[in-house]
C-alpha cells in the first residue's frame, strides 16, 4: 500500500493531493469583496440583538422574572401591612426592591448562556471570528436591557403597592438602578458562562453570583433607601456611588478579558 505506515504517533499526511494545475479561482467569485473585521462593538451589538430578538419571541425569561418580582412584592406585603402608618416603608424600601431585583435578575441570567446550549449554538459562536469579549459584551447588553425592563415595571408596581413616591429623586434613582443593574448583569453573565455546562447550573449561578454582588447590592440598598426617603446624594453617601462605579468598571474589564478562558479553557 502506497505511503501507508503503521506506528504510534508521528504520522504525516505530507505529499497529499496536489492542488489543481490551473490557477486557483477566488474563494467565491460571487462574493463582491473579501470579508472584513467588524468592530468589537458591532459584533457585540449583533449578539445583543440576536438575544433580545430570541427573548422577545419566547418571553421565557422576561415573563418569569417579572412574575417572580411581583410575587416577592406581594409576599412581603403579607409580612407587614404597607398601610400601617407606624411603619416607615422608606426605611426598608431599598432592601426590598433590590432583593426582588436580584432574585428576578437571576432568572434572566440563568437563561443567558443556557440558551446557547440548544442545538450546540455556543460552539458556532465560539468558532466564529467574533472575539469572546464581544460575545460576552453582547450577552451582557441583552441581559442588561431585559433586567432593566423588568426593574422599571416592578418599580412601578412597587410604588403603587407600597404607596412610595419615587418622583422626587427619580434622576438619581435611575442612575443607581443603571449602575447596579450593570453590576448584576456583568457578574451574572460571567457566571452564566462559567456554569453553562454544569448539570445544576440553575442552583450554582445564584450561589456563585450573590457573594460577589454584596458590595454593589449594599451600595444600591443604602442609596435607594436614602433616595426614596427624600435624602439626596451628597458627600455622606457619595462613597457608595463610587463603589458602584468602581465595581462596574473593574468587573466589566475583568470579564471581557478573561471570558476566553471561561469559554475555551
Amino acid at each position: 500500500m502506497a505511503k501507508a505506515e503503521r506506528g504510534g504517533a508521528g504520522f504525516s499526511l505530507q505529499g497529499g493531493l496536489q492542488p489543481t494545475p490551473q490557477p486557483m479561482p477566488a474563494l467565491n467569485p460571487q462574493l463582491p469583496a473579501e470579508p472584513h473585521s467588524p468592530s468589537f462593538f458591532r459584533q457585540a451589538l449583533t449578539i445583543a440583538a440576536k438575544d433580545l430578538r430570541s427573548e422577545l419571541r419566547t418571553k421565557e425569561a422576561l415573563n418569569a422574572s417579572l412574575a417572580f418580582s411581583v410575587v416577592i412584592f406581594l409576599l412581603f406585603s403579607f409580612a407587614f401591612d404597607p398601610g400601617n402608618l407606624d411603619i416607615d416603608i422608606n426605611e426598608f424600601s431599598g432592601g426590598l426592591l433590590w432583593l426582588a431585583f436580584a432574585f428576578a435578575g437571576a432568572l434572566s441570567l440563568n437563561r443567558s448562556f443556557a440558551r446557547e446550549l440548544q442545538n450546540d449554538c455556543l460552539d458556532a459562536l465560539v468558532a466564529s471570528p467574533a472575539p469572546p469579549g464581544a460575545l460576552f459584551l453582547g450577552k451582557a447588553l441583552a441581559n442588561f436591557a431585559l433586567i432593566l425592563a423588568v426593574e422599571i415595571i416592578s418599580l412601578g408596581v412597587f410604588a403603587v403597592m407600597y404607596n412610595v413616591h419615587i418622583q422626587p429623586q427619580l434622576g438619581w434613582l435611575i442612575v443607581v438602578m443603571l449602575m447596579t443593574t450593570w453590576a448584576i448583569t456583568v457578574i451574572g453573565t460571567a457566571f452564566s458562562a462559567l456554569t453553562v455546562n454544569l448539570r445544576m447550573r440553575e442552583l450554582m449561578l445564584p450561589i456563585l453570583t450573590y457573594p460577589f454582588l454584596i458590595p454593589p447590592l449594599m451600595a444600591a440598598i443604602l442609596l435607594t433607601t436614602d433616595l426614596l426617603g427624600g435624602k439626596p446624594i451628597s458627600a455622606d453617601n457619595m462613597i457608595w456611588v463610587r463603589v458602584l462605579v468602581a465595581f462596574d468598571v473593574i468587573f466589566s474589564l475583568l470579564a471581557v478579558v478573561f471570558i476566553d478562558i471561561v469559554l475555551v479553557g
Binding site: P35, K50, R53, S54, R57, T58, Q118, N119, D120, C121, D123, A124, A127, S128, P129
Partner: peptide, 17 residues
C-alpha cells in the same frame, strides 16, 4: 477562525430565529 467552517453534532441554529 474566519477561514474555518465547523459542522458539529448539533445544527448550531437558533430555533426562535
Amino acid at each position: 477562525r474566519r477561514r474555518i467552517g465547523v459542522l458539529g453534532h448539533g445544527i448550531s441554529l437558533y430555533d426562535e430565529l
